[in-house]
């Protein structure tokens, strides 16, 4: 073990602040910012540290839900539709369920790829072998984020994702 990381703080808070319900923001700083942009082209495939190709962005309607995904080190896909999380609260269409930003794990924290269902973040993770899992299907691997997003839509049966609280 070495190197204190932000996750140590997270884990610590999980023990001490546990019991907070999902909707209850706690006073942690919002750490939702994506990793610094690495200054690479958009169209050539993204090479991951593990040697796996980073999947391309996607954006589609699947079973009536809007699913989209893009590499987390980009602010947004080319259409600019997601530029800046802060601007999001101003989107009138879903302002009524604007998420509390504080107290979340930071939906993109440690993530390589951002996946959203109807504009709500789905926490995803890449496995060492290049497969993917999501918080909704956390014990089952998928070959791509798109497959994972579609599986989450089936699992959700119309329910909305809610912000992740870990402490």
């Amino acid at each position: 073990m070495s190197r204190p990381t932000r996750r140590q703080v997270l884990h610590g808070s999980a023990a001490t602040l546990a019991g907070a319900v999902l909707a209850a923001p706690v006073a942690l700083s919002d750490t939702a910012a994506a990793r610094p942009v690495a200054g690479h082209g958009h169209s050539e495939g993204h090479q991951a540290p593990g040697g796996h190709e980073m999947p391309e962005p996607f954006d589609e309607v699947y079973q009536g839900r809007h699913i989209e995904g893009w590499p987390a080190d980009e602010d947004a896909p080319e259409n600019g539709g997601h530029a800046g999380r802060a601007s999001e609260a101003s989107h009138g269409s879903h302002g009524s369920r604007a998420h509390p930003r504080a107290g979340q794990a930071g939906p993109h924290d440690g993530m390589d790829f951002v996946v959203r269902i109807d504009n709500d973040d789905l926490h995803v993770m890449r496995n060492a072998d290049g497969t993917w899992i999501s918080l909704v299907n956390h014990y089952e691997t998928f070959t791509t984020p798109r497959a994972l997003a579609r599986a989450a839509v089936r699992e959700l049966q119309g329910a909305d994702l809610v912000p992740v609280v870990t402490g």
């Binding site: 990381t5 019991g19 540290p49 440690g110």
Partner: peptide, 25 residues
Amino acid sequence: SGRYDEFISTHNAFIIGDTDNGERT
């Protein structure tokens, strides 16, 4: 009493935080 949910949030925190190429517990 609320104690049960503390176990859930602890588990959830670790399952999100544990990554193959980072800290994992």
